[in-house]
């Protein structure tokens, strides 16, 4: 955006920080309240499963552990992509961006599999307050991951057009911030929703 133009001549940004990065961080601060609301809703409703399956009956911890691990590792590849670009290593930047996007897609695939399994086992979206809250929370997270994948793919396209250069590594950094945030939210969800013992029927 035109912030460089909008900053008056002869003096820097007030904080010396990049406008774009600051914007992303304000957004992430705001997202905390969004996910906080969804997570609290889930926590309030997790024992209200009515006649449907209970969370403790249905969660497949080993499976989710694997997909959580995949997402965690995508944070590593993301940061490696940034680090490569900061060195001016376009090739490795592309490789790691692609790997990150693929790991993200793998996570989403895992989520789709999990959802369909739950559906087969009788946990539909409308089954109980628990099921609605669970699908909404994890669904919102999934949408965030998917948007992240779209951003990563856009970065890749931009890279192949030759516009994603060392000078513009901040773009990758900002997308990375978003990506890591989504990962961090999953770290929270994985522990609090899956690992903390859930009610059983």
């Amino acid at each position: 955006m035109a912030e460089a133009a909008a900053v008056s001549h002869g003096h820097g940004t007030g904080t010396g920080l990049s406008n774009n990065k600051l914007l992303m961080w304000t957004f992430l601060g705001s997202e905390c309240l969004l996910f906080g609301g969804l997570i609290s809703t889930y926590l309030i409703y997790r024992s209200r499963f009515g006649d449907g399956p209970a969370p403790g009956d249905i969660f497949d911890i080993p499976f989710t552990s694997v997909s959580s691990f995949v997402l965690l590792m995508s944070s590593l590849t993301m940061v490696l992509a940034l680090s490569a670009l900061q060195r001016g290593d376009i090739r490795n930047n592309r490789i790691w961006l692609l790997t990150t996007a693929l790991l993200g897609a793998l996570f989403i695939g895992g989520q789709v599999y999990e959802f369909t399994t739950f559906l087969r086992e009788g946990l539909g979206y409308t089954t109980s307050p628990f099921s609605s809250a669970f699908f909404t929370l994890t669904g919102f997270h999934g949408v965030h991951v998917s948007l992240g994948i779209v951003m990563l793919m856009s970065l890749l396209i931009s890279s192949f057009r030759g516009t994603l250069t060392k000078e513009r590594s901040e773009t990758v950094e900002i997308v990375g911030l978003y990506w890591h945030f989504v990962d961090v939210v999953w770290i929270f969800i994985f522990t609090v929703i899956y690992l903390v013992p859930s009610p059983t029927s």
């Binding site: 920080l17 990065k21 600051l22 905390c32 309240l33 944070s75």
Partner: peptide, 24 residues
């Protein structure tokens, strides 16, 4: 750990940390 290292809060301006921590 992820926030500090991968999101660079360890090295970046405390301003960013503040936004995140206030939200949290």
């Amino acid at each position: 750990y992820v926030a500090a290292w991968f999101m660079h809060l360890r090295f970046d301006s405390p301003m960013f940390t503040k936004f995140f921590v206030v939200g949290l």
